[in-house]
Amino acid sequence: MEALNPSEQRELQARMERKTMKDFLTTYSNIVQRCFEDCISDFSSKSLTSREEGCLMRCVDKQLKTGERLAQRFQEENANQMAKAGQGGFPGR
């Protein structure tokens, strides 16, 4: 890819920030949806039971830790691939 000059980098930066904000919201929504689906199943009342609330808190913790671990491994693997691509070539790029 061609190098970007400073003004192009600023424009790219601005777009990336909007995307990062959107990605954060998607992550948040994914956790809400997954933990709701996995923990909430009692609709005999409109308030959360203490059992549901316990499940929810553990679920959020676990999903956050899952996300951290996945992101770390992903970055490592991606860096590996990039390094290999420098020598050999990465299909799909």
Partner: peptide
């Protein structure tokens, strides 16, 4: 995103007895 949703479904079961992996 694809990896994340697939791997979390494959490896993290839907019961939450503890907050840690």
């Amino acid at each position: 995103n694809r990896l994340s949703s697939t791997c979390s479904k494959k490896c993290v079961p839907a019961e939450y007895r503890e907050p840690d992996l």
